[in-house]
Design a protein around this nucleic acid. Structure first.
Lengths: 205, 205
DNA sequence: TAGATTGTTAATCGATTAACAATC
DNA sequence: TAGATTGTTAATCGATTAACAATC
């Protein structure tokens, strides 16, 4: 949709959006300068201007960027208005926490349901989301029209899970299992390895 | 400790380590080539060689890298042998999941305890880890000799939490709150915003 | 107008890749 | 030896920063 933008600029878009949304909405701050944003987020101000230029929202010399318009432009850029459905596989500790987490709605994403192979969990709801058996993964993804998936299964099950998700029509995967997932075709994958990140921090000391 | 290495190389070190540890340990694979590693992880093979060179483990032309030695070199590089203590602030859904997660030990990190301001949680244990009141944060960090911390509190509490952690001697923070944290001095921070990552994926479709 | 801020073009920096010599 | 693989040096690529003109 917006693919002619540097990868790293794209990664910063949600950061800008979060920050702008956190600002007071009482009319005291109708415009904000790239310098102010840069300082708040620890970025260079030229970088901020370059990034914001991709949203198509023009700033005004001397005053800055119109806050409300800029938020709208970022939301449009991130396609937040066309609601997308996501499913989660693996309703363990992390999976359950994500099911109960409300933050996805800030980005127009509905986490619709979870899949798990534990009979004790199947049939229950977690965070108000139904837990379905893995055997219904294909059917469930299609029912909800899911294009996004979160993998929160143990490492050894991640690859097979990913393949089943792709077969079920999933186009992008957020993978919490600490293994590389190989996907066919043009499926996007982002890996988040929490322990590895803590290890990186530890080794930087 | 190892600071003359590109940031991105450092980020890949845990990936190499995870992969090598996942290989069969039955003597069938005493050496592994950079090409094999590269293919498994979806990286360029020259890049793999450059990265591995930082560990000091020399590969052998024609055979590859000695698997066991390479694992040891990566562990040494990541300082996995000098055990470090971490604390967690915010024992909500995500925090609780992290407390119960055993993966930090793979990197020589012990998640020692949690802090929360919910009286119903204080005094209990989650994942075997005691939950202490926020008022004991300083004391608790020092008791466990913690240098690492995980912030899993709501966004509006993150900055203050970070400041208290730094005062308590914490040197690096893994921040799950979707806000920029400003730290004084040379405290390292890595941010993980789960919802933002899903949003990035969604916008790439 | 003068000054502040945007937006763009050029320069720099860092990371990746390509080419190739060294080695077992 | 010939061939495979490492390790290094140079080239490329992409992202960030610097310089500066444009604008309100």
């Amino acid at each position: 949709m917006n693919r002619d933008i540097p990868e790293f600029s794209l990664q910063r878009m949600p950061i800008y959006l979060n920050y702008l949304r956190s600002l007071p909405d009482d009319g005291s701050l109708n415009y904000i300068s790239s310098g102010a944003i840069a300082q708040a987020l620890g970025l260079g101000e030229v970088l901020v201007r370059k990034d914001l230029a991709y949203t198509g929202c023009a700033g005004r010399p001397k005053v800055g960027y119109p806050r409300v318009e800029l938020i709208a432009a970022l939301e449009k850029f991130l396609c937040i208005n066309d609601f997308k459905s996501a499913v989660l596989v693996g309703a363990g500790g992390l999976g359950s926490a994500l099911l109960a987490y409300g933050g996805f709605e800030n980005y127009g994403i509905e986490l619709a349901c979870a899949f798990d192979n534990d009979p004790a969990k199947v049939g229950t709801t977690i965070g108000g989301k139904p837990v379905l058996p893995i055997s219904e993964l294909d059917e469930g993804c299609k029912k909800y029209g899911a294009v996004l998936a979160i993998i929160a299964v143990p490492a050894q099950a991640a690859q097979q899970t990913a393949e089943e998700l792709v077969k079920a029509g999933i186009k992008a995967i957020l993978n919490f299992a600490p293994v590389q997932i190989n996907t066919s075709g043009d499926v996007k994958v982002i890996n988040i390895d929490v322990a590895a990140n803590l290890a990186i921090l530890a080794s930087m000391l």
